[in-house]
Computed example of a mutant assay.
Amino acid sequence: MLNKKLMSKGILKDILIVAIGVLVIWIGLQVVFGTQNPFYVVASGSMIPVLEVYDVLIVQGHVPFDDIKVGDIIVFNRPSGHDRVIVHRVASVIDDEPKTIRTKGDANPASIPGTDFPITKEEYIGKVAYVIPQVGYVTQLLKPPINYVIIVIVIGIMVVKQMTKKKNEKELSLQDPFKKNDSNVESTANIPELDKLEKDKAYSNHDNDSSTKAEKQESEKDQK
């Protein structure tokens, strides 16, 4: 029961670390690019061939709306209803006070009222700074039910990781702490110096015994 609790705590800890890491990175990107969402995926072919469907756009929100000029590609909320995000090229400035612009998709025959104009600072999100081709295909993998499968796999990996960790710790705790030391101790029979000392001692004892025996025999002869 204790192991299960420890394993659950380990999994929650890993998930928390990942979540905090993602959050910190996301907040950092928002600060750097000056917009709540610096990444957008092209969803239509209105800007082909410059922008293809599934291209990922990195938007720079720090570029002021007043600095936007004809020819810039910008991201903005649809003027009519603010219900869609559009990425089109600036076609003209139709008013200066306040600044109002008209856009058009490169692949579209003309600007669309309510979509391409009138665009003011209120609709403006940012200027397209970078384009990452076709990376938007990854977003298709994050749609249900595939995203749930990915989440389950990630959690499964965390569970296996914690189980393996606990198993290794248990095996180490059951291991004889003296076994390793004993295996490193060399037997005296394998030490040449000790073998020589033992042999010398045996020879010495043998010589002493022989001398004692000879003296005893000489003494017996004298007594006779």
Rank of each mutant, 00 (worst) to 15 (best):
R102I: 10
R102L: 07
D116H: 02
I112Y: 04
G126P: 04
A107W: 03
I125T: 01
A110K: 11
G114E: 06
I119T: 01
I132S: 12
K121C: 10
Y130T: 12
P109T: 05
P109M: 10
I112E: 12
T115D: 13
I101V: 12
K127L: 11
V131T: 15
N108F: 04
P109A: 12
P118N: 09
K121I: 13
D106S: 08
I101M: 00
Y130G: 12
I132K: 12
E122T: 15
Y124P: 07
E123G: 09
G105L: 00
T103K: 03
I132W: 15
S111L: 03
D116L: 04
P109S: 10
S111M: 00
N108Q: 11
S111A: 14
E122Y: 15
G105E: 04
R102P: 04
N108Y: 05
T103P: 04
S111I: 05
I125F: 04
T103M: 06
T115N: 10
G126H: 05
A107F: 13
T103C: 06
D106L: 05
I112K: 05
T103N: 03
G105P: 01
T115P: 01
F117N: 06
R102E: 13
P118T: 10
N108C: 11
I119F: 05
I119M: 07
Y124E: 11
E123D: 14
T120P: 03
A110F: 10
K104L: 07
K127Q: 15
Y124L: 11
T103S: 05
N108G: 09
T115V: 14
G114P: 05
D106Y: 04
Y130C: 12
V128E: 05
A129I: 00
I119D: 06
I132D: 11
V131C: 08
G105W: 02
S111N: 01
T115G: 01
Y124I: 09
T115F: 05
D106R: 01
G105F: 00
V128Q: 05
A110N: 12
T103I: 04
T103E: 00
